[in-house]
Amino acid sequence: MTQFNAVEEALAEVVSQGRCLGAALRVLHDGEEVLDLAVGDATSTQAMAADTVVPWFSASKLAATVAVARAWELGLLHPNDRVVQHLPEFAGPGKDDIRIEHLLTHTAPLRAVDRETGRRFADGRHALLELVLSGDADPDWTPGTRAAYLGHAGYLLLDEIVRRGSGRPFADFLHQQVAAPLRLTSRLGAPPGADVVDVPWFGPAELASRVARFDVSMGYPSACMAGPFGDAAEICEMVRQVGTRHGRRVLSPETCAALVTDQRPPTLIDESAGRARRWGLGMVLAAENFGPASPASFGALGGTACLVFADPEAGLTVSLYFNGNTGAADRLSRDRRVIDALYRDL
């Protein structure tokens, strides 16, 4: 028996039930790695391993958010800036008062144009950016007064703001300012020469067509990080340690506090979820997928395959990856089965 007997059994059970091909779990406690476990398969010919290169899906926003926070600290932008201050061609009715903070909290009136980006992944970054820049704002939506998850539109604008301000591609900025200091091998657009796992669908067949499929090499900041998902734990751990990891300061304590402080009114309904959801600046707070984690927990979710979070009250940071997207209910069941077992073990 090991300290993590319950969580090892939970992971093995999920895989044996055919709810994914394989899974990987990394756990940091008080800054030290205490578990780095992989079970099952990555492909038909490759076992799942801690260093398997996987797509991060929307958990890519975690890395992108920290890159935007670095741009803030370098004076390239401020959360209270209006987007049109940086991107004048974005101007238009209902759009002039959209601020950077609204993009990070998913409270910008861009839901319709965001849905259109989801239908046009294959068009590439430039075409999607032009679509968002020229698109109309949603009517009857004052920025900050309504909330709905934006899969791509907000982060395409953030990408361009940082690109213009820094004079370099967002992927390069993210690597230099975030990935390299944290010793990550993951990259926006995938590590050079890496074979990225094609994550299969395990949910109801009638929902399969809703799963976004695109090549991570397109480099969208909202969904195209790829690499070992344990790298995501390093990002959350840095924020948990108020900006420092491996003896390197990446963010200031003040910036970290802003990322994980509630930025939405507590009664504001997220129209994507049908209920109130807590958000910091680019971070989901105390998500139900985090199991018994404390109300202070923060992190990100990716597709219906992965999650990463830090729980400051427990001194804990966790990254969990299932090699298999699935329906929302099964995803929550898998997540909670493993995270609940982990907290019991600890």
Rank of each mutant, 00 (worst) to 15 (best):
I161C: 04
T52F: 00
D172N: 15
R19C: 02
S166Y: 04
E254K: 11
D231W: 02
P79L: 07
G151D: 12
L251T: 12
M1V: 02
F290M: 12
A286Y: 06
E313W: 06
R19E: 11
V284K: 08
R115T: 05
A208L: 00
T304C: 12
T107E: 02
V197M: 06
A23M: 05
R119F: 04
G92S: 06
A23T: 05
Q263T: 07
R168W: 07
G193I: 08
L28P: 02
M225C: 01
F202L: 13
P221S: 09
R277Q: 08
F4Y: 15
L76K: 14
N80V: 03
T255I: 08
F170D: 01
G118E: 08
R264Y: 04
R278K: 02
D345A: 07
T2F: 05
R334P: 04
I339G: 10
S319Y: 14
A6I: 04
V113D: 05
G135V: 12
D159M: 15
D330A: 15
S60A: 02
G219E: 00
V53C: 02
P192E: 13
L346G: 13
R164M: 12
E89V: 05
V284I: 15
L129F: 15
P266N: 11
D335V: 10
Y220L: 04
L76E: 09
P88I: 06
L131K: 13
S16F: 12
L133C: 11
L21A: 14
R278D: 01
G75C: 01
L207E: 15
T326L: 13
E288T: 08
G227I: 00
D140H: 14
D97H: 04
R119S: 09
G154Y: 13
Q85H: 08
L25N: 12
F173G: 05
R249K: 13
T145D: 13
W201C: 07
H246T: 10
A50P: 03
G135F: 11
R119K: 10
R163D: 09
L129C: 07
P169G: 03
Y220S: 00
L35C: 03
G135I: 08
A38H: 07
T2S: 15
V83C: 06
T65F: 05
H78L: 02
A273G: 00
R344Q: 06
P192F: 03
P139W: 14
A287R: 08
E9T: 12
K95L: 03
P181S: 14
G144W: 13
G165A: 14
A212Y: 06
R82H: 12
D136A: 12
V211P: 04
T317G: 07
